[in-house]
């Protein structure tokens, strides 16, 4: 990890000092452990702060939107897919983008690590190739990285970047062995009443902070539907109907675009598993229209396309 971080810093310094890009978007060490945050390096000196650890959970594609000038982005598989998405949606030109590609080792869910030490404060996490050394006051434990991966990283199918101008480190295997079809849409086996109960159970802690929306690289509308006031389509209360409306519409807006990067779940302060909704749509898009978002530049998104023989048994 540290070797890759060092190479990212070197690449960033080189790009910035040669004037190839105006900004390098990467990750920097958080002020508390396990909270790496997006970092914008404008000068070679600032590039020293860039890092690469097991907790780079934000999706950096988000920060390329409406950013003038040329930018370099540190991109693992999902970020690169979102960048392709944004290029396809004409948000910026490929020429303005320099992709520093990294093979994703799979990011670690800080909640899963914290759950191992209930009530204790973790003060330091040291990266080792296959393990993490978790330290706190009066305890120290070596844990296996693989067991604490984020659930979307476990079922990832694209760990190497789709596009890259420069590859840091070696390309690695594409998957982690999990099969998305086994875990996507977990409520499909249930009857409607149970599904509704599950939805309520999932969303009951939602405080409507919209962190999931703000962390999502797909959400770049100038006015989000939740902020619309006239007409107000989505109420602002924590009533179950309003919360459900928000989450259903948010998921629907990601239809055919969501790359399952998991930024929404990582950003949620309440630990809500909204991938239970988005994975269903992703699965539908895959099964109905045979499309995986962000895999190729120039692909038409499935929602702006139709074929005469699209399934329509549900229409009378």
């Amino acid at each position: 990890m540290e070797a890759i971080a060092q190479k990212i810093r070197e690449a960033a310094k080189r790009l910035l000092s040669e004037g190839k890009v105006d900004v390098v978007i990467g990750y920097a060490k958080g002020s508390v452990p396990m909270r790496e945050y997006p970092y914008f390096a404008y000068t070679p000196e600032e590039a020293e702060n860039l890092t690469w650890t097991s907790f780079c959970c934000n999706n950096l594609a988000l920060y390329t939107i409406r950013r003038p000038g040329r930018m370099a982005v540190v991109a693992q598989g999902c970020v690169s897919r979102n960048l392709v998405n944004l290029i396809n949606e004409n948000q910026f030109k490929r020429e303005d983008l320099y992709v520093i590609g990294v093979n994703s080792p799979g990011m670690v869910d800080r909640r899963k690590v914290q759950a191992l030490f209930p009530g204790k404060t973790i003060t330091e996490v040291i990266e080792e190739p296959e393990h993490l050394l978790v330290k706190g006051q009066g305890f120290e434990q070596r844990i296996e990285r693989k067991k604490f991966l984020r659930s979307n990283c476990l079922t990832c199918v694209q760990r190497n970047p789709v596009i890259s101008d420069e590859m840091i480190g070696e390309k690695g295997p594409e998957g982690h062995g999990g099969n998305i079809d086994n875990v996507a849409a977990p409520w499909e086996k249930l009857i409607p009443a149970e599904r509704w109960a599950e939805l309520q159970e999932t969303l009951k802690d939602c405080i409507r902070c919209y962190a999931c929306r703000d962390a999502c690289p797909l959400c770049y509308c100038h006015v989000c539907f939740v902020d619309e006031a006239q007409p107000q389509w989505c109420g602002k209360t924590q009533d179950e109907a309003d919360v459900a409306t928000f989450h259903i519409l948010r998921a629907f807006h990601c239809a055919g675009r969501c790359t399952d990067c998991g930024a929404c779940e990582s950003a949620c302060p309440q630990g809500i598993k909204m991938r239970r909704l988005t994975s269903k749509i992703e699965k539908d898009i895959r099964e109905l229209y045979g499309y995986r978002p962000g895999m190729e530049i120039g692909a038409t998104p499935p929602m702006s396309l139709f074929r005469p023989n699209d399934p329509q048994d549900f229409i009378k």
């Binding site: 409607p192 109960a197 629907f252 239809a255 539908d284 929602m303 229409i315």
Partner: peptide, 18 residues
């Protein structure tokens, strides 16, 4: 026709949530 794709996904989603 574009609506058809939208409805297909939306109907599946709404039925999925109960």
């Amino acid at each position: 026709m574009f609506a058809r794709r939208r409805f297909a996904v939306l109907k599946n989603l709404l039925e999925y949530v109960g």
